[in-house]
């Protein structure tokens, strides 16, 4: 995109959307009372959409901005480290899979969801210096898969319904 102010407005819009979804997710009751800490990953809908409709670069920018803003608003430094580990690993996996073109949006978002959880567990192993988090990995793999299917379906619905020229997305 050559028009700088248009790019800025775009990034602002999509970052705001991702931020709102992250906030909605905090407000929603936990999905499984016995397994706290499991989230749907709603902001990932925005990232999947950007990945398919715009560019990998825009998804990276929005993801990092969202993590920074959520940390400033609700979190702390520890939460930032976990968010970054999950967010970066998830995005890298999704960008690569998108490029290889072997999966649909649902598959890409499933891989992204699981990668997000794996990234957070790896960070936890690193910070807490313990390798005994295997149980969480099992639970989070299943949770990441289910959340990924939901997010992927939402993302593909958005991609289908919103035309390529909406908000000059194609320019």
């Amino acid at each position: 995109m050559r028009n700088k102010s248009k790019t800025t407005a775009f990034m602002g819009l999509f970052t705001a959307l991702a931020l709102i979804l992250a906030y909605v997710e905090v407000l929603l009751p936990p999905l499984f009372a016995s397994l706290p800490g499991i989230k749907m990953g709603l902001p990932n809908i925005i990232l999947v959409f950007l990945l398919y409709r715009r560019s990998a670069c825009s998804a990276i920018v929005v993801s990092l901005l969202r993590i920074a803003l959520v940390t400033m608003l609700f979190g702390n430094v520890m939460a930032l480290l976990y968010s970054l580990a999950g967010g970066i690993l998830s995005l890298v996996v999704m960008i690569l899979l998108r490029r290889w073109n072997v999966l649909s949006t649902v598959g890409v978002s499933v891989a992204g969801g699981v990668a997000h959880n794996v990234g957070q567990i790896l960070m936890a192993m690193l910070l807490l210096e313990t390798a005994e988090l295997g149980f969480y990995l099992v639970v989070l793999t299943v949770a990441g898969t289910l959340a990924g299917v939901f997010v992927g379906l939402c993302g593909s619905a958005l991609i289908r319904k919103i035309p390529a020229n909406f908000l000059f997305l194609d320019k």
Partner: peptide
């Protein structure tokens, strides 16, 4: 055809992930 291939790969990915989780759970 591309969509069909994608769908097949998606399902494969999900099955593999759930199998990995099931193996881990069984082990634990």
């Amino acid at each position: 055809n591309v969509n069909k291939r994608h769908l097949r790969n998606d399902i494969l990915l999900i099955i593999v992930l759930l199998l990995v989780a099931a193996t881990g759970a069984a082990y634990l």
